[in-house]
């Protein structure tokens, strides 16, 4: 039973047909990656899942329930955490406040604190910067904060949109290590990346998306060695 399944999803942005019948699935415990070039519809796919945009037709099934018409704030409450493209941390909130926002629906302060401790295990840097304003941190730290903030909601499905964007290679390395660690501890992850090689390395399975359509699917290693994929995305 898939934790997430998109069936023939069509999403429009104004007059633009952004997703043309996308069907993908994510099994519990997997890392699935969606690779493709700029404007192919990767971010739109994640936004359709998290409810930031509504699909015109098709369905988004999460844990057996159709959430395709559910607004974002309700979807977030049901265990899907979306780390948006460009990190989108709250620049004038402190690191601590940013993390607290991630656990907005949790009423018990002890649980919030416990989860924050857990986030610090992954990202010790954040603990040192608790009272700093989010907008004053480096790109890598902001990405860590964005992922940490998402973990604060204790999600069952983590959507990551281009976590490596604009970061130095060593930081990218670190971020992918953490993605891998999170998955080993049981987190299901749908990862969108332009950095196709890195993404396919950590992913169990991958989909290739092109102008709003899935053009190829397969195991991570399988896609890395595929001639077409190599030419288009790994060259």
């Amino acid at each position: 039973m898939s934790i997430l399944q998109l069936k023939d999803v069509n999403t429009f942005y104004g007059g633009i047909h952004a997703l043309k019948g996308i069907s993908i699935s994510v099994e519990k415990g997997e890392i699935v990656t969606l690779i493709g070039s700029n404007g192919a519809g990767k971010s739109t796919t994640l936004k359709t899942i998290s409810g930031q945009v509504m699909p015109k037709t098709g369905s988004v099934i999460y844990e057996g329930k159709d959430i395709s018409k559910q607004p974002a704030h309700l979807t977030a409450q049901t265990g899907i955490a979306h780390v948006p493209e460009g990190r989108r941390i709250f620049p004038r909130l402190t690191v601590k406040e940013n993390l607290e926002m991630g656990a907005f629906i949790v009423k018990d302060k002890r649980i919030v604190k416990e989860r924050m401790e857990k986030v610090f295990q992954y990202f010790p840097r954040l603990q040192e910067r608790l009272s700093q304003k989010g907008g004053t941190m480096s790109g890598g730290e902001q990405q860590m904060l964005a992922i940490g903030r998402a973990l604060m909601s204790k999600p069952r499905l983590l959507l990551l949109d281009e976590p490596s964007m604009g970061l130095a290679p060593v930081i990218v390395e670190q971020i992918f290590d953490i993605i891998s660690d999170l998955n080993k501890e049981g987190m299901t992850i749908l990862l969108v990346e332009q950095n196709a090689y890195q993404a396919l390395q950590v992913a169990h399975r991958g989909y290739v998306i092109q102008t709003g359509e899935i053009v190829m699917a397969g195991q991570g290693q399988e896609l890395i060695t595929n001639e077409q994929v190599r030419e288009a995305y790994l060259a």
Binding site: S50, Q52, A72, H73, L74, P84, R88, M101, S153
Partner: peptide, 8 residues
């Protein structure tokens, strides 16, 4: 937009 992703 991002606030709505925080269940707000």
């Amino acid at each position: 937009e991002t606030a709505s992703l925080m269940s707000i």
